[in-house]
């Protein structure tokens, strides 16, 4: 048999290597479906994720109330709507950021450990689809949690400001896209450093929580931290997102004019995934040179 005959013979048995977009999309859907099935096999995790959100919100709401003049709010009741807006919208972004970092890293570790990462690499399925399917689940999942959190706050703790929804949604899309870029980069980092990635994820979460002013306005930060905050694109995303939804009250946005912030957020949303994926490909190549795809 000649090579050509073999190739012809093969084309009948093995699928075409020249995959088209439609096929890749089907695979992507299958990957998301698989993640969903796996998720339903952790029912306790599913329930606790929702329940803990309420505890977190209550925790911060009560903390807020401690700092409001007596009489401004009732003990069991609401906080002022601006404080609520700053906190809640920051909280939503924090959930996305935290989940992206944590889940992607954790996911890849788990697959390295189970050996399924190698199994994935044995197939012709796109590695990009695999990465994106992981973050897609995060968007869906965290999106649900965010909606639940916002509804909870609206119902029980007082009305949140809710303006410029279109621009707010657009900013969210670019912010999420940028966060996925960070997620890709973090996946790359996990491939390289393995277990220590989780410690880093932990530290990073707390750092961005403070530096990106997730739970408080930036002017509360000491000068040094404010200067650092201005170097991090995610800070602008947080600032622009919540200022827009709050309808630009006096003093907001805090870091730059809204036009400048939109430019930064859009650039972040476009460039970061490219950089992140480039880093992932490099890490993947490194893993294939050193044989660490399966190491654990």
């Amino acid at each position: 048999m000649t090579n050509e005959q073999i190739a012809n013979d093969k084309s009948q048995r093995a699928p075409s290597p020249f995959v088209n977009f439609h096929l890749q999309f089907v695979i992507f859907v299958e990957m998301v479906r698989k993640q969903l099935i796996v998720m339903t096999r952790y029912p306790v995790d599913f329930v606790t994720s929702f329940v803990q959100i309420f505890f977190m919100i209550l925790l911060f709401t009560f903390a807020t109330i401690m700092f409001e003049p007596r009489g401004a709010t009732e003990m069991s009741g609401s906080m002022t709507s601006r404080t609520g807006g700053v906190m809640m919208y920051g909280f939503v972004l924090f959930m996305f950021a935290s989940d992206t970092l944590w889940t992607i890293g954790y996911n890849i570790r788990e697959e390295q450990y189970q050996g399924t990462l190698e199994s994935l690499y044995l197939t012709p399925a796109s590695k990009f689809a695999s990465l994106v399917s992981r973050v897609t689940m995060i968007v869906v999942w965290t999106g649900l949690l965010s909606v639940a959190a916002v509804v909870f706050v609206q119902l029980f703790l007082g009305r949140l400001p809710f303006q410029n929804v279109g621009l707010g949604a657009l900013l969210l899309v670019f912010t999420l896209s940028g966060m996925f870029g960070i997620g890709f980069a973090f996946a790359a980092y996990t491939l390289l450093v393995k277990e220590s990635a989780q410690t880093t994820a932990n530290l990073l979460q707390f750092t961005i929580m403070i530096v990106c002013g997730m739970f408080f306005p930036f002017h509360a930060l000491p000068d040094v931290l404010q200067s650092i905050a201005r170097l991090v694109p995610l800070s602008y995303a947080v600032d622009a997102f919540r200022s827009t939804l709050m309808g630009y009250p006096p003093g907001f946005p805090e870091l730059a004019s809204i036009e400048t912030e939109i430019v930064i957020v859009v650039a972040f949303g476009i460039l970061m995934p490219i950089i992140g994926y480039w880093l992932y490909q490099r890490a993947e190549r490194h893993a294939r040179v050193t044989g660490s795809l399966a190491e654990f």
Binding site: T64, T83, T199, N202
Partner: peptide, 27 residues
């Protein structure tokens, strides 16, 4: 995890920092 102990020591300050900064902003 490795390095966890150092983080354990830093974390209470991080946790407290959030309401502290939030409170100062509100007040």
């Amino acid at each position: 995890y490795p390095g966890g102990n150092l983080i354990d020591i830093a974390i209470p300050t991080f946790i407290a920092a959030m309401p502290i900064l939030l409170g100062q902003a509100i007040g």
